[in-house]
Design a binder for these strands. Structure first.
Lengths: 154, 154
DNA sequence: AGGCTGGATTTAAAAACCGAACTTATCCAG
DNA sequence: CTGGATAAGTTCGGTTTTTAAATCCAGCCT
């Protein structure tokens, strides 16, 4: 049952902690739901809006923030016979959140799914067996959670 | 540069999506910062408060929500010669978020760190080389992000 | 009893959120 | 060329949530 040892303060002060910075940037209900939708392929303002059901003003602000932060890129697309419209496409930075959101999906499947089979799962291309979030060493071999050691300062 | 294909709606409606449920539960700045601190070993009300700098009323509410959801367990500890106090300890559910938050830390290190060396990193016990969050198949072998395939319905 | 300490609650001001209506810009039809 | 349709985004009220500070509360210690 090995617990995490008690501390009075976290070893990394929040203002230099990149986790805290990440939380400041994307740790917000609407922002996370936007990223979820974007990772599924949603790109357009009204599609985000009807997917999320949030006020347009909130959506507008969040999209702007994500574009400014470089997670989304505002491009212009043009369907034939239609006028040009903006679309919000994930950049490399935004795409690299995919493992994290998939990990969170599986966490939700395990603990919040009320025994239902998960509506979506993930496999390795060309295989049928499921994959899961875990830690690996430099050689790509799994490291069990109780083997993880934090190292400060570098 | 393979993009995610355009869709008008996500394939999993938000109300049956366990990612959306997880976001509802923990997708909030203060909640995430509480979990961050808890994963570092913070357990006491005042320690959380001085770590986060948030209003006590907000902290109180968020802790209650996390206890109700089963991520934290409210126990009582007693230092010798002191009165018993509650402490908020991560349950198995809460602990299993660790890979996700470490993943987010490393995402922040990569994109938000402004070229600084990360203040904290993670290694395998008894080793010096870094580990990282990733996906593995059933045999514990790494699966690269571009190999991940979503599978609907079960 | 009286003080200390770790938490919780109250309160009023500030901020964020919400829904609906409104503006803008371009394409298409007549 | 005019009018309508459509998608994007803003404006505008009213309502809810946050915030920060002060106050309250309960148990243990001397």
């Amino acid at each position: 049952m090995s617990q995490i040892p008690l501390v009075r303060r976290s070893p990394v002060p929040p203002d230099t902690c990149n986790l805290a910075k990440a939380i400041d940037l994307i740790g917000d209900r609407w922002t996370l739901l936007i990223l979820r939708a974007a990772l599924y392929g949603v790109r357009r303002f009204d599609d985000f809006q009807s997917e999320l059901g949030c006020p347009r003003t909130v959506l507008s602000g969040r999209l702007k923030k994500l574009v400014d932060a470089g997670l989304l890129t505002k491009k212009s697309y043009k369907a034939p016979g239609k006028r040009a419209r903006p679309e919000y496409v994930l950049s490399a930075i935004g795409l690299s959140l995919r493992p994290i959101l998939i990990g969170l999906t599986q966490w939700g499947d395990a603990w919040l799914g009320q025994g239902e089979a998960p509506p979506i799962s993930f496999t390795k291309a060309g295989s049928k067996s499921a994959i899961r979030a875990a830690f690996v060493d430099v050689e790509g071999r799994e490291v069990r959670p109780d083997q993880i050691r934090p190292v400060l300062r570098g």
